[in-house]
Amino acid sequence: MFTFHNDSKKYVYHYTSVDTAVDYILTDETLLVGCYNKTNDPKETKDWFFLPGTNYGKCLDEYTPQYLSKVMNPAIKETTHVICFTKDEVLTGNLDDMAKRGFCKPRMWAQYGDRHKGVCLIFDFESLSDAFHDRFSEYNYNSNDVTYRDRDIAEIGMDPAYIVNVDALEDFGKLAYARAHAAKYKQRLFFEKASDWSNENEYRWVLFDYDGNLPPKFHFKRSLKGIVFGADCDEDTIQKVVKASLKLNPQYQQLKWRNCAPWFNFERTKWV
Rank of each mutant, 00 (worst) to 15 (best):
K87R: 15
T54R: 10
T39Q: 12
F208M: 15
D28M: 07
P65V: 04
L207Y: 04
S195G: 05
L31Y: 02
K184W: 08
D171K: 14
K225Q: 13
E202A: 11
W205M: 08
K46C: 10
L224Y: 03
S198K: 13
A261M: 07
M98S: 12
M158I: 12
D150S: 07
P262D: 05
R258H: 11
H14M: 03
T39H: 00
I227S: 07
T64S: 15
N201G: 09
C233D: 02
M1Q: 07
P74N: 06
Q254T: 10
W263E: 10
F229E: 01
A180P: 03
N165I: 01
H133Y: 12
G157R: 14
H81M: 02
D97A: 13
V166T: 13
F136G: 01
E44C: 05
Y63V: 02
K10P: 00
A183I: 08
L121H: 01
E202F: 09
C233Y: 01
A110I: 06
T54H: 13
L248P: 02
T64H: 09
Q66P: 00
K58M: 14
S69Y: 00
N249E: 08
A110R: 09
N201T: 15
I83H: 05
R135S: 11
R179L: 06
K240D: 01
P106A: 08
T92L: 06
V206I: 14
P106K: 11
G226T: 08
R101M: 04
L189A: 02
E78K: 11
A161V: 07
K184V: 13
A231K: 13
P215C: 06
K217C: 08
D23V: 03
K243G: 07
L51H: 01
I153K: 15
G57R: 09
V12W: 00
A75D: 02
R107V: 10
C260V: 12
C260M: 15
A161F: 02
L246Q: 15
Y36G: 03
D130Y: 04
S143P: 01
V33I: 11
H81R: 12
W197P: 05
F190Y: 13
K174A: 07
N142I: 02
S137K: 11
K221I: 03
Y210G: 05
I83L: 14
N144C: 03
S127V: 04
C120Y: 01
S8T: 04
S137C: 09
G53W: 06
A154W: 09
F49D: 12
Y148C: 02
V272F: 14
G173V: 04
T92G: 03
A231R: 09
A244I: 06
D145E: 05
G118T: 05
M158S: 14
E192P: 02
A21L: 07
P65N: 08
M98D: 07
Q254P: 03
N40G: 06
R151D: 10
H133P: 00
K46I: 06
D196K: 10
R179P: 00
F136H: 03
D145T: 12
A21W: 00
C59P: 04
K70A: 10
E155K: 13
V18A: 02
E235S: 13
R149V: 12
D171Y: 12
G113W: 01
F103E: 03
H181E: 00
P106Q: 06
D114F: 00
F85A: 09
